[in-house]
Amino acid sequence: MYPENFHYTKEHEWVRVDAEVGVIGITDHAQKELGDIVYVDLPKVGTVAEQGKTLGSVESVKAVSDIYSPVSGEVVEINELLASAPEKLNEDPHGGAWLVKIKLSAPDEIKQLMSASDYQKYIGAE
């Protein structure tokens, strides 16, 4: 369920690092909690994200949930698909429905995040 090569936050985001770029998304657990996702609000390319700070938000019909950036760096790409098909976030949260790509400015931050097994323990206890 939760890929081993991802790093996870307590706020239910994940990041997968490809060289110096981090691909960021929300976890399957997060999309289930939110229910049917109707809108995804993403930052503009060029925005400088800071670890733990708001990056955007995800909306269901009756709730809004902030997305907190798992890493710091510049947003280099956003997933345009989500604007026209927010439901993809329910269908494929760990794959095609990634949110943004960030060029890492502090790669060591990854060490503060959870592994897949730690995250699974964390959501089991929550």
């Binding site: 109707v38 809108y39 909306e59 269901s60 019909v61 009756k62 709730a63 809004v64």
Partner: peptide
């Protein structure tokens, strides 16, 4: 689009 509104987003 109720998520714009106060009963959901409160101070935001």
């Amino acid at each position: 689009l109720s998520t714009r509104e106060q009963h959901i987003r409160r101070e935001k």
